[in-house]
Every structure is written in C-alpha cells, then in structure tokens.
C-alpha cells in the first residue's frame, strides 16, 4: 500500500503543512496492519510511536487496576492518536489502542514529531487544537458524571421517600406530596443542600415539582421516574 503524502493533509494537525513536510513524515513512517481485535499499543507502554489511522476504525480504552474498562474515544480514518510522546519524551501511553476493524496506520517515531515541533509553528497549533478539543470533551463528560449522576440519585431518593411517606394529592392526575425540606432531601440522598436546591429549582422550572417550606409536591411523578432511570436525556 502506497501512501500519497498529500493525503496526510486530511489529518487535522497537518492541515497547514507544506508538501515537503508531508513527504518527510511519510518517508519516516512505517505502515502497520492491525487485525480486528488486535492492538496498536497497550496502556503503560512507552509512547515511542504516534499513529495516523489510514483505514479502519480503532478505539482507545483505559482500564483500572481491577480490570474495569472505559472506552475513551473512537479513532476514525486520518485521525492521529498516541502522540503524547512527542511532547513528553518519557511518556507512556495512558490508554490502550485496539482495532475495531482491520486497520492500516502510519507509525512515526514520537522523537521525529518532537524534533519537527521545534521549528514548525503549524504543528504546535495543530496539536494544541487537538488537545484543547480533548480537554473540552473531558470537561463535558466530567460535568455529566458530577451533576447528572447526582440528579438521578436525588430523584431516586425523592421517589423512595414518596413511596414511604408520600400522600396522594391532585385531582384527576396523580400528584404526590412530601412533608420534606431541602435539608431532609440532602441528608437522605447523601448530598448537600446546595446541590438539592439547584436540582429542585431546575425541576421546578421544568414543571416536575413544586417546592415550599418543608414541602415537595411531585407534579409529574413519571417525569421523576424517568430521571431516576436516566431516561430523560
């Protein structure tokens, strides 16, 4: 398989590269074929090469010491991955890269990219764009974990308390009334009164509940069930 250097311009980091640079990268690359289910590298290996996926699909996954796996991202054609060795010479791969389909990729020594970075601002900007994109994505996921999970927990707590001490209210449509303060809900759900206030205000805006002093009225019981099951997104 022959790689046309100009194809490399499809890699976001190389968008602004000169033809000479692209040829240089191709000349210094090794073409690697990886079968479906096989690996490019493992989490913890020294990050000696970075890769550009030419064909196929791969995923980056991380596992904790107990072996539990998290998929970090999917890599598509003409995406660069495993490039952190270019910035930190002693880096190890923080994740494992596994082929989801039969893959072809260019492997280039991290040191080569490291040296190229010294004299080519476009590469620096390209990598920074890649990194800031990753950071933004991670911040979003972190926010989801930190806030959306707590919303589910509070919904479940309110439903449990409703089942135990709630009183039916409303006419045709069922509503459930709870004699609880925000502090009570916070204690029962193992979170803070600030978080409970934020979540309840949001629910109130969405017409799911009505709150007062020592009182929570569930106006849309099914809506709360959906939140508790994470089905409302």
């Amino acid at each position: 398989m022959k790689i046309d250097p100009s194809d490399l311009r499809r890699v976001s980091v190389f968008k602004e590269a000169t033809d000479d640079d692209l040829s240089l990268f191709v000349e210094n690359s090794i073409l690697r074929m990886v079968e479906e289910g096989e690996f490019f590298f493992f989490q913890g290996d020294p990050a000696k090469y970075f890769y550009i996926l030419v064909s196929g699909k791969a995923k980056l996954l991380q596992s904790n010491p107990a072996g539990q796996q998290v998929n970090l991202r999917t890599i598509n054609e003409w995406q660069m991955f495993g490039a952190l060795g270019a910035v930190r010479p002693d880096a190890i791969y923080p994740a494992t890269a596994q082929a989801l389909e039969p893959c072809t990729a260019l492997a280039i020594e991290s040191v080569f990219l490291h040296d190229a970075l010294q004299t080519r601002p476009y590469l620096n900007f390209g990598l920074m764009q890649l990194m800031t994109g990753y950071i933004q994505e991670m911040q979003e996921r972190y926010r989801e974990l930190a806030t959306e999970r707590v919303e589910r927990r509070i919904a479940l707590t309110v439903l449990r308390l409703a089942a135990q001490i709630g009183k039916r209210s409303g006419g045709e449509e069922t509503m459930v009334e709870l004699p609880l303060s925000r502090q009570d809900v916070a204690e029962a759900s193992g979170t803070t009164i600030y978080t409970v206030s934020r979540v309840l205000s949001d629910w109130e805006r969405r017409g799911l509940v009505e709150t007062g002093r020592e009182r929570v009225l569930i106006k849309n019981p099914h809506g709360l069930v959906q939140i508790s099951e994470g089905l409302d997104q």
Binding site: L159, A163, G166, E172, E173, T174, P221, H222, V225
Partner: peptide, 20 residues
Amino acid sequence: TKCVGCLLQRFCTLQDVSAT
C-alpha cells in the same frame, strides 16, 4: 411501562398509566 417495580405504584392510577 415502568410500572412493575416502580416506587410510585401506590399512587398511580390506571388513568395515570393510560395518560402517561
């Protein structure tokens, strides 16, 4: 429906289930 096992079984009426 999510009714079986739901914590709100003792509140929701058949009419509510029908509407939901």
